[in-house]
Nucleic acid binder design. Structure first.
Length: 164
DNA sequence: GCCAACGTTGGC
DNA sequence: GCCAACGTTGGC
């Protein structure tokens, strides 16, 4: 089993949206980056675990855990001329873009904010925390997964004097 | 709203 | 194949 992280802007699709979806499952469509596509198409498999991250949010951070319930298959939003993610170059005979199905497993006991994750030394190499990292689908190592999961069970560390 | 970082496009 | 211009991402 492998581990991943996906980003979503809660204004577009939030963790709550996922929990409220039928069977708490959604098609992870609209990915239009080749690196992210390759990971979804080639390496993401049913049963893999996925952190759900809110970007462009208040706060930004990891909010929940979901599970891959269906391996990659062609992204139908690329075929729909009315869809925001329509791509005329992607055809049903030779699809350019792929999606997986994700199901919400559980909300984390608390949000792990980007600011907090940045302060954890052992997460220094985590893809999410790399300078300029913009990939919307990222690999997470097993040790990173375990570190983040354990952190979510503890109360937030006290911030510097003056912080709220 | 600003802007740095990055990916893609297209002229040459 | 280079690289400038442009569009997007996403933190702040």
């Amino acid at each position: 089993m492998k581990y991943w992280l996906v980003k979503s802007e809660p204004g577009a699709f939030s963790w709550d949206d996922l929990e409220n979806a039928p069977t708490k499952t959604t098609h992870w469509d609209g990915v239009r980056n080749y690196q992210a596509r390759n990971m979804m198409r080639d390496d993401m498999k049913q049963g893999d675990r996925v952190f759900f991250y809110h970007s462009n949010a208040e706060p930004t951070g990891i909010v929940g855990i979901c599970e891959v319930v269906k391996d990659a298959y062609p992204d139908s939003s690329a075929f729909d001329a009315k869809d925001m993610h329509f791509d005329p170059k992607s055809t049903k005979a030779a699809p350019t873009w792929y999606m997986v199905d994700l199901r919400a497993v559980r909300r984390l006991p608390r949000v792990l904010t980007l600011a907090e994750l940045k302060e954890v030394k052992s997460l220094g190499k985590m893809a999410l925390l790399q300078r300029g990292s913009r990939l919307s689908v990222q690999p997470v190592t097993e040790s990173e997964w375990n570190t983040v999961s354990a952190l979510a069970e503890k109360p937030a560390a006290r911030r510097a004097v003056g912080a709220k």
